[in-house]
Design a protein around this nucleic acid. Sequence first.
DNA 1: CGTTATGATTTGCG
DNA 2: CGCAAATCATAACG
Length: 695
Amino acid sequence: MPRSRKAQKVSTVSSLRATRQNTVSTSNPTFTKSLDNAKTPKRSIDQHNVKKRKRSACRPSTSTHHVPDLSDEDELCDPTEVRSTVSERREPHSVKFNFQTVQKSSRVLRNHKPASSTTTLKSSPNKSAAKSKYLEPSESSDSEIEEDSDADSNYEEPLPKKKKLIKKRKTLRKELEEEGSGEEEDSQKLKKKKLEKPKKKRVRAPAPRVERTEHQKKVALKTLEKIYQQTDTPSLPLKREIAEVLLTTTRNVSRFMNYRRNKIQNQGKYVKVNKEISKKLEELFKINPNPTTERKKEIADANKLKLQSVSNWFMNKRDRLKNPEKWEELNERKRFLMKRQHMKTKAHNQLNGIPPKVIFFDEDQKNFMRARFQEFNLPTTKQCELWGQEIQLTGTQVYNFIKKVREFSRPGVREQRNKRKRERQKGAPKKHYRFVPRGHPPLSEEEALPIIKKVLEENPDYVETKNGVLMNQIYWPKYKINNYIRHNLQQERKPSAKNVKFLEEEFQKHQSISLSHAKDLSKTLGISIEYIRNWFSTQKRRTLEKYLDEKQELDSLPAQMKTLEIEYLKNNVINSIEVAERIGGVKIALGYFRMRRLLDRKRGKKVPEEKDVPKVRKRRQSKKPSKKQAITQEESSDDSDESDGDSDDSDDSDDSDDSDDSEESFTDSDEWDSDDDDEVDKVVKREPKEEPEDE
DNA sequence: CGTTATGATTTGCG
DNA sequence: CGCAAATCATAACG
């Protein structure tokens, strides 16, 4: 083993060397030389130009420019596509590292730089010359630099050799910049300064640094990984060479290798910490958000985590606590990038005549999944994963298939879809609702703010729904609107600890809260109505889950729930309005039962499917319609399920086309919250469309 | 699926 | 080395 490794090492080294020689120069400079001569001047120039970029580098606009670069990624690292064993996930296209690759990369990296958007570096005209200086092509030792080195002689500081040189430059650089162009007698000034300030503390110049484009970074990482595959402990000179070729520092190369080696030891993959531990960590974090390494080790051991994970956890926590808004921004950008990437590949495929992939499940698979569906109407993702393994499908595929089957098993859905399809064929416009309106760029915050405010004035608790009021005015995505409102325009939502207690007491009294009551609470506690209602809803579920999972006594339930539960234990469906009214009101009782069945189902218990549950709802024409009407129209007016599916077959697989299904998402399972007689509808909500006036 | 929540990695800095 | 900041990546959710 060691032998082969050594051999590899050697070959790598030599190849790298060869590479460099090839690309750069015919002479064979020593390392020190290359470091001193090539690197430093390069830096100084960069520093010059780069400075400004630093900020903008992470803004979307800039990165936009970079992305097209990806196109030559293929050209760069395709040679032989191989499954990389280790950090595959980091690599969009994995590359077999060979020396050609490095060679190529080096070339590309170099050539790339001048192209990088904002850079003003001159693309070197001196490529041809076998420069004596082992320099980046882009760098063309400029007059400025020469001066630099001249100036050196004037500047004096007692420092050890190498450091001296470097530091000297940095400082000098800085001074030069401070004085702008009007430098004449540096030496004098320098001396003066020296005298005035007893050279106690030298201000450090901003770290000179070579900016790399996104693309360059990517390539660099890939290359490093490949090198790591060959030698996980490169020698110093080798590291230097690598660093140079990849436009980074030796230190970072070392770091990469360290990290990489470490990672294996840590066995660390993506470890989800479970709820309990997470809670513990939260507590610990409250006590001390910044534990020492020792402490972290303890924590790690106590919870069977890796030190690294614990570190990460704390780091992330601190970070995320600090700037939640930034988070938003990031997400948005990410989404943007993803979308573009998606479109790009789509376009690419189209261009090359690659048809969009369509997966057909074979009959066996379909039957298998249908059978599972019959058993468990609502399988978990985990479950789907397992099933998927049995029939060579991914969990997602299974999940989505079952979801679709479920959807179509609802009465009326199929008819609805067909109807819509027919209409469309007749030329009716395709209804197209999405969370994000298209066809118009989002308004800026300034533009949007007055509009939002106006809406909020009329409805302080406004929450954007899909195709809600605001979305089509300001063209923001739903989540953004809601977040914005929540963070900037609405009262604080989270109750204090004291308030929580109060709420809990309130909850013991009645587990369903009327709108008016919620309003009162909202006023007294200073928490938004929405939050309160939501809190009650989750509290109910929590209580119920606790009761079920911990096998608690009936008596542990608050009065109202207890009554309902007793009834439920007798019969898990409600057969008549009378019963419902007797045990707490139609809304509440139905809601409770529904929720309860859902919980049972989740626990693998057999209970009637919702579609089989007898409907005991009063239809409109019955009593007390007045109230109902009023609220109903406001809320359920527009939430028909809009999924404009296609197809008449529930089967063939997903990704048929753009938007569809999965839309109605929210309020999916928290039904029985919307209780009390104030706003009677909602519970009905899921079904109201089933009065199918098909053609 | 599209989003959100959260873990992991890279890099600058002292 | 250890932290912060910026990003990247994956799992879970609706």
